[in-house]
C-alpha cells in the first residue's frame, strides 16, 4: 500500500504507462475544460479512503462505490439525552463530499459517495436528488461555464434489485452528455472476460443501455 500511495501521480504524466492502460492520456489545448473523473470501489475501507483523498489523486471528481460509511458522531437533544449514533462518510479538508439521497442520513447506509476537489476553479457539482434518490445511486450535474453534463454513480448490490430498477425508471435527458459509471456487479459477454457466466439480469442492463443510446467506454473483456 505504501508504494501505491506514491504512484497515483504517474497517471497524469503523458509518458507514464499503466499496465492496464487502454489508451494514453493526451494533453488537450483546452486545459481549463478538462475534468478528470475517477471511479473506484473502496470496499468500505476507512483507511484506503483517507489515503486516496490525501494522496492527491489525478481526479477532480471521485466516485466511490461501497464507501466507508460509519459512526461519525452522536446526536443529543433534550428529547434524546442518551444520544443517537450518526452515520457519515470519510471527510477531507481538500474535498467536498456528496452523499446520495438517503431517507435518514443519520441512520441509512450510503453505498455510493462522491467527492469534488475544493480547489477546482472551473466547475460546480450539483447533486440531482430530484432525479435520483437512492442509497446506491447518485446523479451529479457538473456545470462548466455554459456547458454541463451528468455523472451517475452506480453500485448494484446483488441483494437489492431496487438500485437497477431505480436507474431503469429514471428518465435522463438524451440531449445532455452523460456517463454512467460504477460497479454494476453484472457479467455479460458484451463486456466481461471470456468464460464468466452471464448474470441473469445482464440483459436488462444491456436493454436499458441500448434504449438510452449508451456506448460502452471500457474495452470488452478487460476486467475492472
Amino acid at each position: 500500500m505504501a508504494t501505491t500511495l506514491l504512484t497515483p501521480h504517474a497517471l497524469t504524466t503523458p509518458d507514464s504507462k499503466s499496465p492496464d492502460a487502454t489508451c494514453q492520456p493526451t494533453l488537450n489545448p483546452f486545459l481549463m475544460s478538462n475534468i478528470h473523473i475517477m471511479s473506484v470501489n473502496m470496499c468500505h475501507s476507512n483507511v484506503l479512503t483517507h489515503a486516496l483523498l490525501a494522496s492527491d489523486p489525478p481526479a477532480d471528481i471521485i466516485l466511490i462505490q461501497e464507501p466507508w460509511y460509519g459512526h461519525i458522531g452522536t446526536r443529543w437533544s433534550d428529547t434524546d439525552p442518551v444520544g443517537t449514533n450518526t452515520l457519515g462518510g470519510v471527510a477531507s479538508p481538500l474535498w467536498n463530499f456528496i452523499y446520495p439521497g438517503l431517507v435518514n442520513p443519520g441512520t441509512t447506509w450510503a453505498k455510493v459517495m462522491a467527492y469534488s476537489r475544493k480547489t477546482n476553479p472551473i466547475f460546480t457539482v450539483s447533486n440531482c436528488l430530484d432525479l435520483v434518490s437512492h442509497p446506491s445511486l447518485m446523479t451529479l450535474e457538473v456545470i462548466v461555464g455554459d456547458d454541463h453534463f451528468l455523472i451517475t454513480n452506480v453500485y448494484h448490490d446483488t441483494n437489492d434489485p431496487t438500485c437497477l430498477q431505480t436507474l431503469f425508471d429514471t428518465e435522463f435527458d438524451p440531449t445532455t452528455p452523460a456517463i454512467f459509471i460504477g460497479n454494476f456487479n453484472t457479467h455479460s459477454p458484451t463486456w466481461s472476460p471470456l468464460g464468466l457466466p452471464r448474470s441473469r439480469w445482464a440483459h436488462t442492463v444491456e436493454d436499458w443501455a441500448a434504449l438510452n443510446l449508451l456506448d460502452l467506454l471500457n474495452p470488452p473483456g478487460v476486467p475492472t
Binding site: 504512484t7 478538462n34 478528470h36 456547458d147
Partner: peptide, 26 residues
C-alpha cells in the same frame, strides 16, 4: 479512459479514470 489498479490503493477493484472534454473553452 484508463483502468488503473494502482490508483485504487489495493482495493480488489480497479480505479476507472475518464476525462470530460468540454466542447467549449470555458
Amino acid at each position: 479512459f484508463i483502468i488503473d489498479r494502482d490508483a485504487s490503493l489495493g482495493s480488489d477493484h480497479a480505479a476507472l479514470l475518464v476525462t470530460y472534454l468540454s466542447p467549449a473553452d470555458n
